[in-house]
Design a protein around this nucleic acid. Structure first.
Lengths: 137, 137, 137, 137
DNA sequence: GTGGTCTAGACCACG
DNA sequence: GTGGTCTAGACCACA
């Protein structure tokens, strides 16, 4: 569990946790059905409050990415079904648009930008939907 | 000045303002040297707190996108030089990576994602750095 | 004993057990006087902790729905007398009220709601009190 | 704001809050667009911790029943659209089924049960979906 | 052991 | 003023 949190970031710690767990699952560092560290354990390792970990876990459960079995712990869901929430997609597009704008002000050329997208999708492995939609190339 | 702010969005209003002004400048809806509305004017038009507009202007000035001439008003900078701030680029890459991850969970295929990038760069016109990586202009 | 427990449900497993046993008795799948599986047996079949089964049995006994005969096992009570516990009725009404509220937010029309009630009472067979309010039996 | 919380209930306080606010909105005791008490205010009135109120408000916002305007407060949404979440409907049906079963053990006749449903829908006013689907009677 | 809830009190960004 | 986050530490039900 290589989680690095930045307490200075404007992104809440619990959200950083959510993001990184989602990444680790896509990268298959954590596998479906696998048990996540307990709230107390993770909080003591990361030196953060148990409540913060708990909030992250609850959010992940709400997204149906993990499941909690009462008294047993939290586990990665066996089946993570991509669901196309229109509202979320629109929000993502807006965020993407903003990144493109920022890129421009930072002098980043489109080719680099797309190259990064390719790189990140590759890093997530060939399993994700983003990674490959075309059979071969 | 077609600015539409969403008070319900979780993005701070001042940040929405900054983002949209930057977009309008790239789209050349606002031109270099053009005068921006005064804080008071804009705040009364948008029905938001003057402090909010002020904060947005301060941020834009900090990014050297606009300039304030004492007693004359605020103007779009004549020369907007893309600065490759390494820290900002790294932050942008992180944000992009997170978007790719989210895309995967939303079931969005890479092709669509890249297509959106192409679309947004086109919308910004051929002037931005992102828009053209073609050698000459 | 067709018991299907959902470890992912937020309803405690012992409570799911209690609920399902009560349902099976109403449906006469389990008959008065019938012997229930031992705690050990049931727990090994359902792959759950014996303590969990034990707790369910204790609760069923408390509700006088089953009886434990020392050394002989647990049996469904011969006579299950509906007891109009005012407190429980009030709790049930509160729960029902909340369901009606939720229905509204889910866009469920009253007619459907009542239809479901009719359906479930029918499923419980003509024996239950809910099922028939016809004067004699 | 007539909110009565039961700290002894097994239902979490924050959830009781959510339920009661939803009820008050349906009953039009609180109107769309109306401002809710601030987190601090409500917590001091109800003698509970601000965090508890906050959790309730966040859940209500997630359900799109209220909206928070940063720095301004929380408001009842202008448009509360009933959305038929299949999963939630199934859960509701399960809960309803269980209530029917409980009714039987409490000796409650079906007619009473349905009468209560009618009563509660009426209490929620003629506006809700549950309340009336037939034009008149 | 597990996660969930609650309290107490602090700090922060937003408007 | 507002809500959001975080910490510290407690208690509870569940398995």
């Amino acid at each position: 569990m290589l989680l690095n949190l930045d307490p200075r970031s404007h992104i809440p710690i619990w959200e950083q946790l959510v993001n990184q767990v989602k990444e680790l699952i896509l990268k298959e560092v954590i596998l479906p059905g696998e048990k996540l560290p307990s709230v107390r354990e993770l909080s003591s390792v990361l030196l953060i409050n148990p409540n913060t970990v708990s909030k992250a876990y609850q959010e992940l459960e709400r997204q149906e990415i993990i499941e909690t079995l009462r008294g047993k712990g939290t586990f990665v869901s066996q089946t993570i079904i991509p669901k196309a929430d229109e509202q979320k997609i629109e929000a993502l597009r807006q965020a993407l648009k903003q990144l493109v704008i920022e890129s421009s002000y930072l002098g980043i050329e489109k080719e680099y930008f797309i190259q990064w997208v390719e790189q990140y999708t590759k890093e997530l492995g060939g399993r994700s939907n983003v990674a490959e939609s075309s059979s071969d190339s």
